[in-house]
Write a protein that binds this DNA or RNA. Sequence first.
DNA 1: TGCCAGGCCGGGT
DNA 2: ACCCGGCATGGC
Length: 222
Amino acid sequence: MSVHLKHVFDTLLAALGPQHWWPGESRLEIMVGTVLVQNTSWRNVERAIGNLRESGVLNLVALLDLPIQELADLIRPAGYFQVKAKRLQNLFAFIRDDCGRSLETMFGKNMESLREQLLGIHGIGPETADAILLYAGGMPSFVVDSYTHRILARHGWIGYEADYHEIKDYFELALPQDPQLFNEYHALLVCVGKDFCKRTNPKCPSCPLIRLLPSHGIIEPA
DNA sequence: TGCCAGGCCGGGT
DNA sequence: ACCCGGCATGGC
């Protein structure tokens, strides 16, 4: 199995090249992006982050003082802007109250305990927590998303009923705990999803998804 | 024009 | 333990 997943990675990397994730110029910007991108296209998130940057509030001090309605108005293009504004404030409050307003302190924590703390924040679920750990913190926490689930299930590598942590374990138990590997792997899976999953019905098990290099070990769905 | 996008939460059964 | 609706903008 470990040979299998590493082989898939090598094949994807050779075919698609490094993805240079996560897009963003600071750890704080990356964290903001992980919340804004929840069930939303990255294109829309870019506009929202652009608004924050142009307004000069893309820093912790400013964000901690920004009234929620002003925050919501700035992130409007990302959709769900009222709930996401609250979720962002919850995350900022965690950094303020439980990390001494310091990202150094935040990511100096033990990964497992920090993950549990992040999951305790209202609006931060497993994917967002893992994306923060991996892409903002450089910690080896594999990120699972809907593409990952669909790609693996349609190849028959996992069942459709597999839950988030089953899939996370599937990768983490088979691969070395290398942040750079986890970083690139998740990014490549999303890239595959974007390029090959467009306009497919995720509820249709026979819908063609992956046509990438079957001769290299990535098989066609049944 | 309807469906989808790098989720998550709360209420109902 | 599921299943479902709500949240919302922009692209194709």
